[in-house]
Design a protein around this nucleic acid. Structure first.
Lengths: 363, 363
DNA sequence: TTGTACGCGTTATCAC
DNA sequence: GTGATAACGCGTACAA
């Protein structure tokens, strides 16, 4: 895509003016000493008054707050950090920020942290395989009071490294009982989805997973487990050709489906471990003139807000809720770091729609 | 949704153990002095060596780096901030993190900042109307070296307040020539979308906008402008009933369409100013047994990755690109704050699909 | 209830 | 090329 650069624009006293309005008034580095002097008290009193600590005369406090407000003074968080050792920030570590699931979890967590007056440091893990990448625990050292980690394997180096920092770590969307987590039972969810296909009569069932196993992402591992479990339960031997990967993206799901459709023996049903990959698969099917639920069945995972419109059968999980609750667990542990490890497990539900049906009888 | 709390789990020497592996070694607050002592040099030299400054003997530097690595030492960013006055962080200010457009822009910007070793502070504006909300420029004071602002009105108090902080501000997705921005011509885009409907023969054209005007979001303002422009151009008087709002969400678009369908005289075509609202509108139409492009035409805006699958006519903009370029502009200005105001304008394109067609002849 | 003074871990300025 | 040391702006004993 070609971008066009415009020549600078000299505003006729518009924004450029409005924007510089307060210039020269108070932008010159206000410190706590300035406020102390102006209010006729010590810096200690200013500090106490502004932070709402007890043992401050109401009159004094009121006065100090007035002065601070008038001079538009805000405590330097940096200096506070250095003095207290706390950052008032939480790092959220996630793969694929732009995927619906992660953006939605993030949104829920952000609201909670924001309300609690914590800053949110966003960290995308990027490609875990990249050679010179700096692991999150190195990059985030001394930058946050806790880590909210989405969908990463608790045993991976990245996560273990975070635990070593000795700060609260909360995992979201990870099927483990060994750490603080908010999660759904991904293995059970995948089993449910696959069982649904089996119940409809399918035996040639393919899966579109995310990353090649062993993957650093738990959904890959757990949902594949559930998939295999349901197959085994039905006495079906998994076909190696039916294991594909779609990087959790629409386009990836599309390409994975293309590969499946190119097989000499096509599957009659497909389980995509994310709704977005399922959407991609549906797109590929449509290109080939195939109708989901009639020619080939497809079931997704997430409960994407568009699954309804696209008539996709899917395993619905409370996505935003996972983020909200995860953030709350974080705040809780910030107050009392000695809280025991625990898990909040949310229920999931298979929502059956038109994208799944009995297998087409072979000609 | 009801959550189930599990009782704590005592791992049999699993993660809990692996996780505490390094305990007792070096977790006790390493400072630059410890490294200096261990390396037999001054703190000044350690600082210089580790930051790659010139005027350090290569041998000394190598030695210091070895020691630092061995002791797993990382400079305290907090102390650096206090000493330098720089934070090495950029705040990204956005409404609606979980919407596809914003998550995608964010994703692009994150990658750029991450690679440049800047932290990303995520700030969701939330409901601008909330009474006790703290404006971004107050909450983010002294916390970032610059602000990347998505889709907010440059003249709004929030944005003006940020400019007053006298740090680089880059706007993304805002049609203005008064500040540093990456943008598309939203007015032209909306005009293009509406003109397309007019060209097909529609005259009863509704719009699903985001927030009630005057909205703090520029897409609302600019795209409505373009819409009105195209109507005026065709000699069509806008019907007040045809102006609806969908909060930029799928559900909101759905509800807006419901209101339109409840009108005594229905529109024959609808322009939704975001694809997600268009999707919602399509959902409502389907519930009513209506087919997009035949019974009612609908055109969206964004170029959502699912517009293709849903056969939605839409105005395609380079979303991730806007974020990437915006972040780059930010870094550029960090190096040279005196750079002149400029705009990067990206081209847009109307992608015609099946959701638009000629109006149904009235019975 | 309030004030004094030291420490938090760096960077930067100056000598050497 | 290297070292000593004064900021940076706040929190917090401790004393008053």
């Amino acid at each position: 895509m070609q971008a066009v650069t415009q020549t600078p624009y000299s505003p006729p006293g518009g924004l450029e003016h409005a924007v510089r309005g307060l210039e020269g008034t108070s932008l010159v580095a206000m410190t706590i000493r300035d406020i102390a002097r102006e209010a006729g008290v010590s810096t200690a009193t200013v500090s106490r008054a502004l932070r709402g600590l007890p043992n401050v005369d109401p009159t004094t406090r009121h006065h100090v707050m007035k002065v601070a407000e008038r001079m538009d003074y805000v405590i330097s968080p940096t200096a506070s950090r250095l003095a207290t050792g706390r950052t008032q920030a939480i790092a959220v570590i996630t793969p694929f920020i732009s995927r619906w699931y992660f953006a939605t979890v993030l949104s829920g967590a952000e609201r909670v942290f924001h309300e609690a007056d914590f800053d949110l440091l966003l960290f995308d893990t990027g490609e875990p395989s990249e050679p010179h990448r700096v692991p999150p625990h190195r990059r985030l050292r001394h930058k946050a009071d806790g880590f909210l980690v989405l969908s990463l394997d608790p045993e991976s180096q990245d996560v273990v490294g975070l635990f070593d920092l000795d700060l609260p770590v909360v995992l979201v969307g990870t099927t483990t009982r060994r750490a603080v987590t908010t999660m759904v039972d991904d293995v059970a969810g995948a089993r449910m989805a696959t069982q649904h296909l089996v119940d409809l009569g399918h035996r040639d069932i393919a899966i579109i997973s995310g990353r090649v196993l062993p993957s650093p992402f738990t959904p890959d591992v757990d949902r594949y487990d559930g998939f295999l479990g349901a197959l085994a339960n039905a006495g079906i031997t998994p076909d190696p050709d039916f294991l594909t990967f779609g990087s959790f993206t629409v386009r990836g799901g599309d390409q994975a489906m293309e590969r499946l459709l190119a097989l000499p023996r096509r599957p009659t049903a497909v389980f995509a471990i994310s709704d977005e990959m399922a959407f991609g698969a549906m797109r590929a099917m449509r290109r080939h003139g195939l109708t989901p639920g009639r020619d080939i069945s497809i079931v997704g995972y997430d409960g994407h807000e568009l699954a309804d419109l696209l008539d996709l059968t899917t395993v619905v999980q409370p996505v935003e809720e996972l983020g909200v609750r995860g953030a709350q667990l974080m705040l809780e542990r910030l107050l009392d770091p000695s809280l025991p490890v625990r898990q909040i497990i949310f229920p999931i539900e298979l929502k059956v729609r038109g994208s799944t049906g009995p297998p087409l009888r072979r000609a």
